[in-house]
Computed example of a mutant assay.
Amino acid sequence: MVLGAGCVVSAADSGWMADALCAETDPDAFHPERANPDGAARRVCQRCDVQAACLAYALATGQSEGVWGGTSPAQRRRMRLAKVVHR
């Protein structure tokens, strides 16, 4: 998968995970219940050096749950749909 600025990511590319701030954070924050906002997770993502790689991985692997790269499942669905429409 290619995402902006020539960033190429495959589903197998997960080396960035070792540097992800979420690995040092309560995993429940990244899988909030529908009634709870995901603001705490997004704040962690905003400070994370691998946010772009995380989002690219989530899009490439079709992650449909949780917060990935600072995005909600609904935001990633819209991104995937927009990519399909623009092909």
Rank of each mutant, 00 (worst) to 15 (best):
M1I: 11
M1V: 09
L3F: 11
L3S: 13
L3H: 08
G4S: 14
A5S: 14
A5C: 09
A5M: 11
G6N: 12
G6A: 11
C7I: 13
V8C: 11
V9T: 15
V9K: 05
S10V: 06
A11T: 11
A11C: 12
A12L: 08
A12V: 05
S14W: 04
S14N: 11
S14M: 09
G15A: 10
G15N: 12
A18E: 14
L21E: 04
L21C: 12
A23Q: 14
A23I: 09
E24S: 08
T25I: 12
T25F: 05
D26C: 05
D26Q: 05
P27R: 14
P27A: 15
D28K: 14
A29P: 07
A29G: 07
F30L: 00
F30T: 00
H31C: 05
P32F: 00
P32K: 00
P32H: 00
R34L: 14
N36R: 15
D38C: 06
G39V: 08
A40E: 05
A41C: 03
R42N: 01
R43F: 05
R43Q: 15
Q46G: 10
R47G: 05
C48T: 02
C48P: 00
C48R: 01
D49Q: 13
V50T: 14
Q51T: 13
Q51L: 11
Q51R: 13
Q51V: 15
A52F: 04
A53C: 09
C54Y: 01
L55W: 00
A56F: 03
A58D: 00
A58M: 04
A60E: 05
T61R: 02
E65G: 06
G66W: 01
G66P: 09
G66Q: 02
V67N: 00
W68Q: 02
G69C: 06
G69T: 04
G69E: 01
T71E: 01
T71V: 07
S72K: 02
P73L: 04
Q75P: 01
R76I: 04
R78S: 13
R78A: 13
M79K: 11
R80L: 15
L81D: 15
A82S: 10
A82C: 05
A82H: 10
K83E: 15
V84L: 11
